[in-house]
Amino acid sequence: MSVSNNTTKGPRGGQRFLSSLLVLIAFHLFTLEASAQNQPSGSSFTARLVNIEAPVNETFRYQATLRNDADAPQLYELGSEIPEGWRLAFKAMGSQLTSIKLEPGKTESINIELRPAYGAKPSKYNIPIYAVSEKDSLELHLEAVVEGAYELELTTPSGRLSDEIIEGEKREIHLKVKNTGSLPLTELSLSSNTPPKWDVTFSPAEIKQLDPGKSTDVVATLNVPDKTLAGDYVSKFTAKNAASTSTVTYRMTVKTSLLSGGIGVLVILVSIGFVFYLIRKFGRR
């Protein structure tokens, strides 16, 4: 009886084993197929420089490279997570864009321009950049190190930007140079743009360093030549260094001196008297 039972169960056990083996093979093939579908395509999103330092009033510019190594064309949507008030732009082939299509095996250079918010505090900011398609989800991590701002203001202590002067005289114009930024300003120089033959000297003519929030006084001595016609004249004074520039326009009203006016009146009277003399002398004939 025991022999008979073993022979009847043998074929059924083999069938069950074969069925289990087939199910296992099918499950393994399904797992391999799903794994192949979810496997990364090998596409990449990289940048030559990922860390850039610059003042807050400048644009951070990164050069990135996007490559499609998938076996089909991919439409990549470009995006980012930036701090509030910041601005970001993607540019390629001379145009601004928000998405780009790449053929299999193709590479495209993408310029990323990042503009910090006005008044952003000096710090290091992490900026994630995304390129997402149906098959790829690529991420690039950039760093923007905000150093602060170079800002310069040239004005007068009273805010007045006009005056009067007699031709042939000199006038001292008091100016104030202010560092309104968050970074020190070094090697500042003063210059002028005046009407022809006018002359300006500055004291001091150079400022070695001006710390944030500080100001210094400068005296501009303006020399107006003799015989300058009466009227309004404009001069421009400039303070600058390699990082910042500020220009102020100053209007000067030139008046004729009393001596010059007296001489002019005397010449007119003499001319009238001479004409009257000629009329009396030659008029009798």
Rank of each mutant, 00 (worst) to 15 (best):
S2D: 15
Q15K: 12
R16S: 11
F17S: 10
S20Q: 14
L21G: 04
L22Q: 14
V23L: 14
L24F: 15
L24Q: 14
A26Y: 07
L29S: 12
F30W: 07
F30M: 08
F30Y: 08
L32V: 11
L32Y: 06
L32H: 01
A34R: 15
Q37H: 12
Q37Y: 13
Q39S: 15
P40F: 06
S41V: 08
G42V: 03
S43A: 10
S43R: 03
S44N: 09
F45W: 05
F45Q: 03
R48D: 12
L49R: 11
A54H: 06
V56Q: 10
F60A: 06
R67S: 13
N68A: 05
D69K: 08
A89G: 07
S95M: 14
L97E: 05
S99Q: 13
P104H: 08
K106H: 11
T107L: 08
I110Q: 03
I112G: 00
E113A: 12
P116M: 05
P116Y: 01
Y118C: 08
P122C: 03
K124F: 11
I127E: 02
Y130I: 06
E134T: 13
K135Y: 06
H141L: 15
V145E: 11
E147C: 04
E147L: 15
E153P: 03
E153Y: 10
L154S: 03
L154N: 03
S158H: 05
R160F: 05
S162M: 09
E164I: 12
G168M: 05
R171K: 15
I173W: 00
N179V: 04
T180C: 08
P184E: 09
E187W: 10
S189L: 11
S191C: 05
S191E: 08
K197W: 12
K197Y: 15
W198V: 06
P204W: 01
K208A: 14
Q209S: 11
D217W: 07
D217K: 11
T221Q: 10
G231D: 04
D232F: 09
F237L: 03
T238S: 08
A239I: 02
A239N: 00
A243G: 03
S246Y: 01
Y250H: 01
Y250I: 02
R251P: 03
G261C: 10
V265F: 13
L266K: 04
I268H: 11
L269Q: 04
V270A: 12
V275M: 09
F276M: 11
L278D: 04
L278Y: 04
I279T: 09
K281M: 02
